[in-house]
Write a protein that binds this DNA or RNA. Structure first.
Lengths: 337, 337
DNA sequence: TTGAAAGCGCTAACAT
DNA sequence: ATGTTAGCGCTTTCAA
């Protein structure tokens, strides 16, 4: 039979004092005598008393719980962001509650509504790829729950946002390839409808233009995962033997490309230089180690929760803000002579 | 200015009925007239009323929140387990609260105590590598919070457990290497004090014995990460040139070994065959793809939460259970001729 | 069919 | 220095 946890009432009963005395003693109220204080604190310690956070939340109308909604759990980037959020939350006495939309719009809507029940102090969210309608988020904000959007954000909604500087990061990766001597760089691109895919492609195009390299539509391929890259690259290399650089929208795509290039008998970085994006674990241990961009997911998480708490502490008075997270170019052997 | 959320009291006031009527109407109590019911439900809908889960928890002494404590967030295995837990929790109306010990014993103890405050319905935990003293967990169970340990468990504590069949998995990996022709297999082992490290090593030793291969103490190295393996292997290969197989306690260690072996000019799998453990993303995309064992983290998570709920529903009457999760051997190019 | 009141654990204004 | 009481949002027994 599972027991009940100790309450303030139990302590009061045992010590023959009132609950308010116990309550005050526990928070070191000046009115309480040292003797009583000591007795209460010692008993509390002995019985492993912990204040009931749920009762406190009810009373204070503040749950000290922050919701985090992500489309994917098993993903290095999202788990880093959660790690970052958690590290700040931990120090400030907040707990985080994870909501996993699993890339499903319906589930996102359902969770958004369910989450109202927990009287969260706020929500940090990255939406699903399917999400086109934002009424459920608007409803939350109307209900008084502040939201910070991160990574996958949309312009249509005015709110607090933390975004990654995809454009400049992509620009710099391509610049790096150019400086390493590449003249014919192809891009393995993500979906056109997602800002992150679009921005990375735009950064690529802008860099080509800046450094006076040919921009060819034929050099952009929609191809954003390992298998696709492995299957697509051979024919691309056959058709365009001049290719000496590959910039992929993410690391696994880059790795798939490397695999295909190696199988063609070409050397990396000797014949073709390759760069990815995101700094997955795989990128650093691959052979050769992959040049990539670190997205600083942890930092993004930290900024998101800071922004949320600043906003809610000010009761919304400070207005909405957007923070941009910068990138770190990580040049590795796949692109270095 | 952030608003308050709607309460049952607001509905009562607006409709000029008592709170109990509203409460009953919302849960379709037979006593309430259709008319009142309809009015209440419609207003609730209109105002986006959600019951305050915290108040409910207080009242029912059941939070419908399950804690999950992991030593690492940014790790494929742990995020898979969390994903598994979450998928079951979602369907049963439970929420999960993540506690991240970050491989720190002190933090684990701190969190365990802090977590008492949330009156969790239970805790699913995998402990840190440092944890040698279990009083904090015992205290939790004494406080009436049921625990299910997963993956990293210890014999010293009697409780519900979900473990992975490390011994047999390791045995089968080594058997596989033997069948591929390896005669001199070294083991890159994890810490001796953790059952998972011990079991994998024992599986290795048992397989060697079963297949009549030499068991040499010199063939076991304590070395459980990428860097270590990369640094250790060269001297090992110099000293024992007869080595033709490597079984590593995890994938990144195996990958570090492969890197070192390739740099020696040896072929994989031609000269040396290598196998890892855990099926990280990196293992499948590596060059060559790494033979490994899938630990079915999601399944483990699902079993853990099922076990927890069965136990707590029975009020502990069913006693402690241990569930073993089986493995899947994934033979890949690193060990296949 | 509905309402009043007590209580879940805790805090804080108001006694004493 | 300590106790009494009301109330946070909700359910439920008892009364009407």
């Amino acid at each position: 039979m599972l027991k009940q946890q100790i309450t303030i009432k139990d302590l009061a009963r045992i010590l023959n004092v009132s609950v308010s005395t116990v309550s005050r003693a526990l928070k070191d109220h000046p009115d309480i005598s040292e003797k009583t204080k000591k007795a209460v604190v010692e008993l509390a310690e002995k019985l492993n008393y912990r204040p009931n956070e749920l009762a406190l939340s009810l009373k204070k109308r503040k749950s000290h719980i922050i919701g985090v909604m992500v489309p994917e759990m098993v993903h290095h980037f999202f788990s880093s962001v959660i790690g970052g959020i958690e590290s700040i939350a931990y120090n400030l006495g907040y707990q985080i509650m994870i909501f996993h939309s699993n890339e499903s719009y319906e589930r996102e809507v359902f969770l958004t509504e369910a989450l109202l029940s927990y009287r969260l102090d706020g929500l940090i969210v990255s939406m699903t790829k399917q999400t086109k309608n934002y009424d459920h988020f608007r409803m939350l904000e109307n209900a008084g729950i502040p939201i910070v959007y991160f990574d996958r954000v949309i312009d249509e909604i005015e709110s607090n946002k933390v975004v990654f500087d995809d454009f400049n990061a992509a620009f710099h990766v391509v610049e790096h390839l150019v400086r390493q001597g590449c003249k014919n760089i192809v891009h393995l691109a993500g979906p056109e409808n997602m800002p992150i895919g679009r921005e990375r492609k735009n950064g690529y195009l802008s860099a080509l233009e800046t450094f006076n390299l040919n921009i060819k539509d034929d050099y952009v391929f929609h191809c954003d995962n390992y298998e696709d890259a492995k299957n697509t690259l051979p024919s691309v290399l056959d058709k365009y033997p001049e290719i000496d650089g590959v910039f992929a929208v993410n690391d696994l795509t880059a790795i798939g490309a490397i695999k295909a290039i190696k199988e063609k008998g070409l050397k990396i970085p000797g014949n073709v230089k390759v760069a990815g994006f995101t700094n997955e674990i795989s990128s650093s241990v691959y052979d050769p180690p992959l040049t990539t961009v670190d997205q600083q997911g942890e930092l993004m998480g930290k900024e998101a929760i800071k922004l949320l708490l600043e906003y809610s502490d000010s009761q919304g008075a400070i207005g909405y803000k957007t923070r941009t997270i910068s990138y770190k170019l990580l040049p590795r052997a796949s692109s270095l002579e």
